[in-house]
Design a protein around this nucleic acid. Structure first.
Lengths: 228, 228
DNA sequence: CCCGATTGTCACAGAAATGTCATTCAACAC
DNA sequence: GTGTTGAATGACATTTCTGTGACAATCGGG
């Protein structure tokens, strides 16, 4: 699965340049030049990263950033701010507002690509092909293998995605709704209770050898995967 | 607990500047000018972030970076590369090697601080101020955990919301009506006396270890959560 | 086409959390 | 000191939520 990036940029030429470069790197790209629309698109599509121009129509980029950070559903999506204004004050404000990186125009497309990659590497290691390790659990997204200690573990496709979802968000309580969004196709109409069943199957699989259960049930809120 | 940062920089003046700035932000700072030593210190101290100069003695910074990334124990520590060389090629190489950010000298200390903060925000949310702390009480809304001192405390959903409500408004007397509005669904038709019961349950939970009670009853008015 | 693996739903059991009430206790006014 | 009022407490019935096993539908590979 490729990572998806949303480009929010109202300079058509620049927007196309970015889109082209990102596509070439294998990302799935969407774009818009409008702040309002950007907010809608993010909520709808849950991109894996966002490139956000400071000066766009309707809503200033920094305001978009603030809004995204305020909403739990979008708070963790990496954001790169893009701007013509090189002033230190702005850069700091952008970063303090929740942006993860801040690039000044003119910029090198290749460097921007590298920064996006670095950001994704951190926020979703599995997209970068890195093995996820938490405690004695190991998940290799490339070979689709899971091990606990020395023992290989077999998981069905859904349980695999579920475990990967958890291991990318250790120690965070996620609601059943969030899990459905992240592990199943977006806007699926599956019953939230079904998540329970898959949690149970996943637990059974990874705890078979009698180890402690890393999945914590948080009553009334959801589940969380506990890092040692 | 404050986040710790390791500064690897062989220019003594610059090193001190960084150390001073980081300390002022509340970080716990260690430093060295030597690549070999840096590797040892990282393994030993497991800092929460590293600022790494490209050109240092013994081992080039990029090599240090590579080594750190190779070792499971240190692979996930955020690294900011620091360099006098502004060439795009170098920046890209640094980022591809596993650095999370890349700052070119001369740089603004405040911007660097902001970048460090952004990195920590992503890698260790609990260190980035998401956690509510009052006295020896700690409530993390993200992991849904509550601790008093060293001891973990279990709360039911309502008590959890109630405690968070209080901790967000320390030293303020709130009426039972306000509490019902803020902690229960709006326009609930629950008896105001019920608040008493939950207060009692919350008190029991957080004071079990014999500490002082942070919740003050204000006769005829409501309750208030007292910051030490 | 057949078979095993996987998946979504359901019903039920058990556990945890919640709201209410009667009673006891503490603070305050006189 | 006494009476009044508001708050704390313990018990309890009820509701809500989660865990679990079973089952039918679906999928995919031989």
């Amino acid at each position: 699965m490729n990572a998806s990036v949303l480009v929010v940029e109202d300079d058509a030429a620049l927007c196309e340049l970015l889109t082209w470069n990102l596509s070439a790197e294998g990302y799935e790209v969407r774009s818009t030049g409008d702040g309002e629309e950007a907010l809608l698109m993010v909520r709808e599509q849950q991109p894996d990263a966002i490139i956000l121009d400071w000066m766009i129509e309707q809503v200033p980029g920094i305001e978009v950033c603030r809004q995204l950070r305020k909403d739990k559903e979008t708070a963790r999506i990496p954001i790169v701010m893009l701007t013509a204004r090189g002033e230190e004050e702005d850069r700091i404000r952008g970063l303090k507002t929740g942006a993860d990186d801040y690039v000044t125009k003119p910029f090198s497309p290749r460097e921007l690509m590298a920064r996006i990659e670095a950001l994704l590497r951190r926020s979703q290691p599995s997209l970068a092909g890195e093995t996820l390790r938490i405690g004695d659990l190991e998940l290799d997204p490339v070979s689709h293998r899971v091990r606990r200690g020395e023992e290989a573990i077999h998981l069905g496709p859904t349980e695999f995605r579920l475990l990967r979802y958890f291991m990318e968000r250790p120690n965070r309580v996620v609601s059943r709704h969030q899990i459905l969004d992240g592990v199943w196709d977006m806007d699926t109409d599956i019953d939230e209770r079904t998540v329970d069943v898959h949690i149970r199957r996943l637990r059974k699989a990874i705890n078979s050898s009698g180890e402690g259960d890393p999945i914590r049930t948080v009553r009334g809120a959801g589940y969380s995967f506990e890092a040692a």
